[in-house]
Amino acid sequence: MNAPATALAEAPVSARRWRATLLGRPRAAMGVLLVGLACLCAIAGPFLWPLDPNAPDFAAILSPPGPGHPFGTDDLGRDVLARILNGSSASLLVGLVSVAGALLAGTLIGLVAGYFGGWADTLLMRMMDVIFAFPSILLALAITAVLGPSLGNAVLAIAVVNLPVFARIARAQTLVVGQLDFVEARRALGFGTADILLRTVLPNITAPLIVQGSLLFASAIITESYLSFLGLGVQPPTPTWGNMLRTAISFLDLAPWLAWFPGIAIFVTVLGFNLLGDALRDLFDPREG
């Protein structure tokens, strides 16, 4: 991450402060650690635990945790540990890509609406209002129903649902920053609009957006599980923590471990991203020293 570009121009966050905030406090350090762990599982999972997550073993259906299968096996005899590790990439992908997509597009919309004002503002923000007024699960559901269920479409649906959140924040921030002296000064110096928007305004509005993004990450993973619950999530046999939890519901009595492990995985990741989000907010808060 490019630290200085994301900070308020008047109060740049020094590299020292990044380190001090993220690693020096137990909550923040924990967040960094957990997010790092989740990312490690997503990238290196297949090397850490070599079993095929999609290979069934019909002779070992619903085996409890034990040697050979430390997390047990699922209803088709597949290794749960391998599926958790493999599922981390799909789940993180859903969370990261959908939030990042919504963040980028929403910021652009908010930036344009806030900076130019007038009819562009009215039109864009009314569109955002329409999306916002739509019940979010229903919108995601309708989008995946139209496009057909897949990983990509689940990501797209979740991104669209989150779009107005970022657009609103970006617009509000742009309105404030646009009035500030140093932006006026740049304008007076004859810098182009694109230059002012991207190099002056944008760096000064990112902090709350990134904080919001880290918080929405959790809800994106949960939303994917809801789409799975309704059969419109990521398709089998590809595991995600959400669809694993969905399957586990059918076997709560016979095989409770099926529900525990993906539940814990979601919890740990959500915990990590929330702690990280809190730390980022503290970091960008000029009153914190």
């Binding site: 809800s219 919890f267 915990l271």
Partner: peptide
């Protein structure tokens, strides 16, 4: 609070029923 945020409601609901 984070437990609450990270539990899908179908999962929490069924646990509560049980």
């Amino acid at each position: 609070a984070l437990c609450g945020l990270s539990m899908p409601s179908f999962w929490l609901g069924i646990l509560l029923i049980l």
